[in-house]
Design a protein around this nucleic acid. Sequence first.
RNA 1: GGCUCGUUCGUCAAGUGGUUAAGACACCGCCCUUUCACGGCGGGUUCACGGGUUCGAAUCCCGUACGAGUCACCA
Length: 498
Amino acid sequence: MQNSERGFTTEMKEVRTRFAPSPTGFMHVGNLRTALYEYLIARSLNGKFVLRIEDTDRERLVPGAENVIYDTLKQVGMTHDEGPDVGGPYGPYVQSQRKDIYLPYAQELVKNGKAYYCFCTKERLDSLSQADAFGGYDRHCRDLPQEEVDKLLQQGVPYVIRQKMPVTGATSFTDAVYGEITIENTELEDQILIKSDGYPTYNFANVIDDHLMHITHVVRGCEYLTSTPKYNLLYEAFGWEVPTYVHLPMIMGRNEDGSVSKLSKRHGATGFADLVSDGYLPQAIINYIALLGWCSKDNREVFTLQELEAHFSIDGISKSQSVFDYDKLTWLNGEYLRAMSPEAFTSLAMPGYRQVFPQTELDWALLSSILQPRVTKLNQIPDMIGFFKELPAYSAELFINKKSKTNLENSAVMLEAAIPVLEQLDTWTVECIHDALLALPEQLGVKNGTLLWPVRIAAAGMTVTPGGAIEILAILGKEEALRRLRAGLAKLKAENKE
RNA sequence: GGCUCGUUCGUCAAGUGGUUAAGACACCGCCCUUUCACGGCGGGUUCACGGGUUCGAAUCCCGUACGAGUCACCA
């Protein structure tokens, strides 16, 4: 190779990370965060981000599930430099298409005495684990005589290939997040490398592929922390360079009793697609999960993906698990919604609008102007605007409001004053309604709220509404607005008579 | 149970021997105001516990407790 000719190569090796999901058809936010950090490490270090599909578990294959992975990455804007769909120099990028690569490597290990054939039956293994709840494989086949092995192989007895772990000593490695980790070798089981169906196990395929794909930073959840020595022993057995490990703290969910456990369905939406259909924006989701377990040097919290690429660094990753906080995600989502252009907001909100008004045309821009500062999740929209379509049945009690100094009597007076003024309006716009209505309180000697409270109640039938009385009247249109006001007045009169 | 890791406000977190222990979300109060929201201002005995080391410890060491992970022909 050219490299050796240069003698001393001081140039930095290109950073390469990989996202290696299994196509299960579901993108858990924990997985997404792992992908995000892998992506950010690569981008922040001018490296490459590769996508590899790990489908070696043939029993759990979900057809078409790969698309969920592509769609998710696309929606959040994480682009991969290499992968099944875009190709690259180290393909194929789907493990099932690499099936034939692994066995020779395992056989090489067998030849070098680092691995061995194991012919144990499922039944024998099961009886083993029953005998001792926390036992492991008893290394029954580890020292089978060669001729015995050859015989069984020849007979076609099913086998697996297991890694031969050292029985004494300890294995240490340094993790970029957790520091130095040491595990006694006696803790390490002779793990299976090649399954009896000929496919490699996840652990084995991972090491082979990461090496073949020149991955420099192995980023994954910290559930792999204690099995990392097994990986390193494999790298060493092959004489390969061990990558930098970046283990990530777990994302937890809060249980009803206050305890925490690994984030799962019972805590709420945990899939990217679920969050999106709950009304969260992909950018907000990404921004939020970036913050779960990582903190910027300057403590900033709101970041676009591009900004994250510039700010991310491994030493900002935390060691301790964090609880997924839907409240904060919701807040962040609201920030994104508010930061949008009115047009962008309207087009995002339109499905919600159409859910309530499939045919009708409204002043969408005006509707958006009152909704945009208030919506924190897109799926709140239908509920928020339902009253425009149909006036809810409401109690006259709603007209009574201490702060606005309204009661059943003066509310009737206010509506009685407002209705004729509004009837005379030729142009039904926020501005005209505003001017017409706000001339009244002064004439009547009351504060604005005293007039506007009953108007809003009559127009909306609810105490809490997006927007004020004037906007609501404008959106309703003159005819419907006046109909509601008159109905409100009638209600008050009926009430006052009693 | 063995092993590994972790523990700063309810939550996310800054902090690397000397700070009045930041900030954000949530919560509460006030202001703004046409309700709500937005925005502004303010509020809360937060360093798990116990021992050390040190003039001085959230920061270093040891133990305890609690939490999590792991111990598959799953990934």
